[in-house]
């Protein structure tokens, strides 16, 4: 039953928005799953041929090999500035950044805040996995109080390292940001909700309404020291307790989830 009979109906297959490359992510890491959701969304909106993605520095640095669209690789944290240039130069392009929490909320905090404040008509896919994956699991601005990382082995101590930043809520205070939502990918239901949120965010851009951002609680089984399944559960329990799921801001007037 492993051969494909041409008369059989294919009900799930690889999106044309992805290349055939094998992704380098660790087993069970949800970066790949989120790539798929972004690719499917762009394909369904029929904008693959006019989309420009901007990759971060972080584990997703090679995303240009995985998305079958035009891609730019920005320096650390600067993806929103690069995306601003691309969008202003080619307003008909669909422009998005794909950024981790170290990239976006640490070294790149100034760029993301000002891109949102300017109301740049870009879409940001923000991957919150609560630490720096690529460089060895160090504490990030998003690391939870008490969470052990390689630079907070006894758990994040707020007296020493302060408190985690809720990026979506922070950016929602800015008038230029029109659609901000926080989603997860820990269950089939959550994956489907994330896909709908991505579609809304890209539609906001296509309608010229302003800045949109989808924060996604993503797993890092390697540096959390958990199995892929345990890590997915932790996104929906430990992480979601600090980072509540759902729409954080929607001033598009379209009543989204």
């Amino acid at each position: 039953m492993t051969t494909t009979l041409c008369t059989d109906e294919q009900v799930f297959g690889r999106s044309a928005g992805l290349t055939e490359a094998r992704m380098h992510y660790c087993p069970g890491c949800t970066h790949g799953l989120i790539h798929r959701l972004v690719a499917e969304t762009l394909e369904e909106l029929d904008v693959l041929d006019r989309t420009v993605g901007v990759c971060p520095v972080g584990c997703a640095v090679f995303a240009y090999d995985y998305f079958n669209i035009d891609m730019i690789q920005a320096s650390h944290g600067r993806a929103p500035a690069v995306a601003t240039g691309a969008k202003r130069a080619v307003p008909d392009a669909v422009v998005f950044t794909y950024q981790g929490d170290g990239d976006l909320a640490s070294i790149g905090m100034a760029e993301i805040v000002h891109a949102a404040a300017r109301g740049e008509k870009i879409t940001v896919v923000f991957i919150n996995n609560s630490l720096y994956g690529m460089t060895g699991g160090q504490m990030a601005p998003t690391t939870l109080v008490g969470q052990a990382t390689t630079t907070s082995p006894l758990g994040r101590d707020p007296g020493l390292a302060g408190y985690p930043i809720r990026v979506s809520e922070l950016l929602a205070t800015l008038d230029g940001a029109v659609y901000i939502t926080r989603q997860a990918v820990g269950s089939p239901k959550a994956v489907q909700a994330t896909k709908r949120a991505l579609r809304t965010a890209f539609q906001v851009q296509l309608d010229g309404k302003g800045f949109s951002l989808v924060e996604i609680l993503s797993s890092c089984p390697t540096w959390w020291g958990q199995s892929p399944r345990e890590a997915l559960t932790w996104t929906e329990t430990g992480m979601a307790a600090q980072y509540p799921l759902g729409v954080v801001k929607d001033t598009t007037g379209s009543g989204t989830e």
């Binding site: 494909t4 109906e9 294919q10 009900v11 890491c29 790949g32 089939p188 892929p228």
Partner: peptide
């Protein structure tokens, strides 16, 4: 399709037999 929905490496195609 639930397996394909959760696969992080996009390894799974799903078919329904004619």
């Amino acid at each position: 399709r639930i397996c394909a929905l959760m696969c992080p490496d996009v390894c799974i195609d799903v078919y329904r037999e004619a």
